[in-house]
Design a protein around this nucleic acid. Structure first.
Lengths: 102, 102
DNA sequence: ATATCTAATCGCTAAATTACGATTGATTTT
DNA sequence: AAAATCAATCGTAATTTAGCGATTAGATAT
């Protein structure tokens, strides 16, 4: 990724939307969120059982979703309970809705 | 990308949503679509003027958007007029709305 | 026939992404 | 104190993405 000039700047909502979209841009991450939507919350292990991927890979995807704030983890030792972050969820929902509504 | 087993399959809507999200997962592509939303249609050159990127790079981003069908190009020699594909646009809009609406 | 114009494609490089197994760290249970 | 459990992180490899300049292709104008 060469960017010879200084970093290109876009509008704030443009950047925000792109970041959310990027986080949603993998079927596994969509599947995780769909699971969380129905189950409200879950542990990493639940997802590892459901998904045909290694535990470390699932962890990586969770990290991506956490990075943009769509989910959050709560310590329930020795497990970690993941839930959708509703505030950020609504924020993303609004951004997409406004984007598509022209 | 190692995937030792056969390819992992997800639900059709999961895959479709991820593909749309991936296409939207770059600020430049969001900016292009926002431009097309206000301008209805435009030529590649218009975008090259507006965006701080090389012509070949803009072409690449247009290709990505074309690939998922969100835009379509119409030959207006020697130019090409790009417009949003409204059917696919609505499809994507619906998928995102349903996804976020739980 | 030649020159010009527009936009796609090619070839390349750098960086990010996705996957895995192995290891580590934190906590609980024995 | 030792063993077990769960999930994050590390290290590595393959693939994809994003950027550029140069070239090519298609069409019009000279």
């Amino acid at each position: 990724m060469k960017r010879t000039i200084e970093n290109i700047e876009y509008q704030e909502t443009t950047e925000a939307l792109a970041l959310f979209a990027k986080a949603l841009g993998h079927p596994t991450r969509i599947a995780i969120l769909q699971y969380l939507e129905t189950e409200a919350c879950c542990f990493t292990g639940d997802l590892v059982d459901v998904l045909p991927l290694a535990q470390s890979t699932v962890s990586q995807h969770l990290k991506e979703l956490k990075k943009v704030g769509l989910i959050q983890g709560e310590l329930k030792p020795p497990k970690i309970k993941y839930c959708i972050n509703k505030e950020v969820w609504e924020q993303a929902k609004t951004l997409f809705a406004e984007f598509f509504d022209k």
